[in-house]
Design a protein around this nucleic acid. Structure first.
Lengths: 199, 199
DNA sequence: ACTGTTACCGCACAGTGTGTTCAGTAACAT
DNA sequence: ATGTTACTGAACACACTGTGCGGTAACAGT
């Protein structure tokens, strides 16, 4: 059933290139990296690089995709842990970030990259949107436009996550999650109203 | 007293280059712009560009500096308006953003740029830090590390500002400011404690 | 209006990175 | 052992960078 037919050489090459990119990002930042740098560090032929990826961005995207696939299961299991007050799978995200902090830091800390936005943050935003839509369907009214709430919630998560990584994760994921919820809950609750009328 | 000795040709050239950069950013994003593009659009000789700026980043920095100088007075006057609950000069910032939205959007919306961080956001963070330090000096205790609060506050401002620009400013600055304060106040107040003891 | 100064232009230059092609070689699966 | 497939290395045209320099045009001050 499993597709184990992937040539070892392919696996090796892709891995080498992906690792090279990450380590280079952590050293000098995404912008300043050239394809030349990457293939030098990975010790891979020039033509080989272009046989696998279109360019630097494409390689980055593949890295991101990999991470995203791996994150999936973690999110699913998160609903067991903090299902109660979960507006976002924040605890799961903090935990996974700690596990894969090299990868995350290369994508977040060392300056944001276009593609990261499109995959990670848009996913978070979707989560938040679903939360508020579900809330609305139960008759609640929002004193602030939904899209702003959604952006704010996902954005706050991003802010704390970024800070955490930039500061070498000085607190455990659980504590970060507590603080995140404490900060965000207050503001969110203030704009949720039971009644029909809005000011 | 005034230094009006600046050669007209210099003013003209610098202005042309700065405008060219902004319009190009709004079209295709900072990363994809070359010095060649800039001088073509500005209709300025190659050597002239390098007579004024070191490279693309340097030109961007000059643009940013210009904006920052102009923002100064606005911030000062903001303390008249919302001095009461001002943790940040948020209203002034929303207003100035609306006035200079082309400039701001080119620097924020179309993907963050390294230098922007260092000037605008670090300034905001400093404001926030000053606020909490002043709060601490009056005997209040914080249930969340100060640096996290600072980051969160400045970050939230950034989030909303970015959203506002990306969505073509659908609400007036005053309303954005109200919503910002509503969202942020709740969370912040929840972590400020009067007493001496912390959990 | 005249004059010295200074900014601009245009072109040429070496240097570096890009993305493609292709024949030769080595590692792979079976 | 054999056919297949991925990698290598070198060459290629192209694009952009940053610098240098003589000629030209716009400037400020008298």
């Amino acid at each position: 059933m499993e597709n184990k037919k992937v040539d070892r050489r392919i696996q090796r090459t892709r891995q080498l290139l992906q690792d090279a990119l990450i380590s280079l990002i952590l050293e000098k930042g995404y912008d300043k990296i050239t394809v030349q740098n990457i293939i030098d560090r990975a010790n891979v032929g020039r033509s080989t690089f272009y046989a696998h990826f279109l360019d630097k961005d494409d390689l980055m995207a593949s890295n991101l995709e990999k991470l995203h696939e791996e994150l999936g299961p973690h999110l699913a299991s998160s609903y067991d842990d903090d299902s109660e007050r979960a507006m976002l799978p924040s605890l799961a995200l903090f935990r996974h970030t700690q596990e894969q902090h090299h990868m995350y830091k290369s994508m977040i800390g060392g300056r944001g990259i276009e593609i990261v936005h499109q995959v990670i943050w848009d996913g978070l935003t979707a989560h938040a949107r679903a939360h508020f839509e579900q809330l609305e369907s139960t008759g609640k009214r929002l004193a602030v436009p939904k899209e702003i709430l959604v952006t704010y919630l996902a954005g706050s998560m991003r802010i704390l996550l970024t800070w955490w990584l930039d500061n070498d994760m000085p607190y455990p994921p659980e504590q970060m999650n507590e603080m995140f919820l404490k900060l965000v809950d207050g503001g969110i609750e203030g704009v949720i109203q039971d009644g029909q009328e809005i000011s």
